[in-house]
Amino acid sequence: MAGIFKFASKDDLSEAVGDHVLRVTQEAAEKDKFLVALSGGSLPKLLAAGLLKHQDEIDFSKWHVFFADERHVPHDHEDSNMLACKNEFLAKIPGIKEDQVYGIDYSVPVEEAAQRYQVAIEAVTGVSAASGAPPPSFDLVLLGMGPDGHTCSLFPGHELLKETEHWVAPIKDSPKPPSERITLTYPVLNVAANVFFLAAGKSKEDVLPLTAGLTAEGLNELGEAALPAARVRPVSGKLAWFVDEEAAAKL
């Protein structure tokens, strides 16, 4: 079972996540690049205060920021995860270089946009999928979760849950609008060095026992019936859930 950290309020949750992000960056201080993947939804607001608190302590100049999933929309569209993250914290931290924040190419069809996003990851990491090498390991992946147990744009019962080859996949039939998106897949998520889930609010109380609270044995028993968020289990990395008391009511 993952490490679960419970907090009395969203503010306390955000502060704790910021502290943990600082620790992870300090542990990777000798690296030239620090690869981060961010989600959208409620995550940008939950994350913002904690990161801004440490903006003078974290070496953000090393950050290369990708998005764990992104909607196939312009960067200034209200549905853009990149826009949400920029508005909440990315644009407020001088150390984060704009050319090290990688947005989706929305000018091409979503299938090609996914391919180009994978190429961008390859260019930053120096790892080529065509070579047959394992996917690169992100230093930190920050994820949210919907009340249905979805994470990134990996939805319950969807065919993308079975994707094993592509690091970035397109989705054209998302059950949540907008329908066209790109998403990181399990082959990438499950080789990350650190994965932090942030979940707050009463809408998450029923699903947390089936995701954060699920043991490895329980996950194996459920198999393909397990919810998408439950299947994010880094092989050798660290998995942590940061939840408030409302979300954790049934844990």
Rank of each mutant, 00 (worst) to 15 (best):
V36D: 04
A199K: 05
I121H: 05
G50T: 14
A68D: 08
S236P: 00
A200C: 13
F60G: 09
L198N: 09
K31P: 10
K86A: 15
A8Y: 05
H64K: 12
P177F: 02
V235W: 04
A249G: 01
L142Q: 03
G41D: 11
L251Q: 06
G237Y: 02
Y106Q: 09
S203T: 14
L38D: 06
E217I: 12
H64S: 04
P94M: 14
P175G: 05
E70S: 02
P170K: 07
S42P: 08
H150M: 08
L251K: 06
D56K: 15
D19V: 15
I4W: 11
T151G: 07
K97C: 13
K97P: 00
K92L: 09
L219P: 05
H72N: 14
R116F: 04
L184W: 07
G157E: 03
A216F: 15
P147D: 04
F196P: 06
A91I: 02
E27D: 10
P177H: 06
V124W: 00
G201I: 03
A226D: 02
F155Q: 01
A169R: 00
A114G: 04
A247N: 07
Q115T: 13
H20P: 04
V195G: 12
G201Y: 12
D244W: 15
H72E: 05
G95P: 01
